[in-house]
Design a protein around this nucleic acid. Structure first.
Length: 122
DNA sequence: GCACTGACTCCCA
DNA sequence: ATGGGAGCCAGTG
């Protein structure tokens, strides 16, 4: 985040960007997962807002963020939908009837969290 | 400080 | 499966 735009961003937005940048190639995260991991609780909408405002030179893998239904949050006939779909396909993400199997594509970090929570039972 | 908005979610008919 | 409605939390004017 070296661009002037990024410097003006709020902590919440920067947190979102940090999380999104960390999504491994070929995997996806839901808005809710990103929000939670960014310390925003249920502010899933913040994630979309942050992605929209992210400067282009940041090379943010925004396409790896989809909604909780495993679908792209754009109208299926929009240019943005197609763009995101193409990008994900090129990364190896498989769509079945317009949806991604979230059980298969949840990120490694998400899996780590599950394992760790298992070791440190509260 | 208030009201409105949203690339969201959850729940229920 | 699917559409509608209320809830949520920050950002923005």
């Amino acid at each position: 985040m070296s661009s002037p735009e990024a410097a003006k961003a709020t902590p919440a937005q920067q947190a979102v960007w940090t999380v999104v940048v960390g999504i491994p190639l070929g995997q996806v995260m839901t808005y809710a997962q990103v929000a939670d991991r960014a310390g925003l609780g249920r502010a899933a909408r913040m994630v979309s807002s942050a992605l929209r405002k992210a400067p282009k030179d940041m090379h943010l893998p925004w396409q790896r963020v989809i909604n909780s239904q495993g679908k792209i949050s754009f109208p299926k006939d929009s240019a943005e939908y197609l763009r995101q779909y193409e990008l994900l396909c090129s990364e190896g993400v498989v769509f079945i009837k317009g949806r991604v199997n979230l059980d298969l594509y949840k990120t490694d970090t998400a899996i780590d969290e599950q394992l760790w929570s298992g070791f440190f039972v509260e």
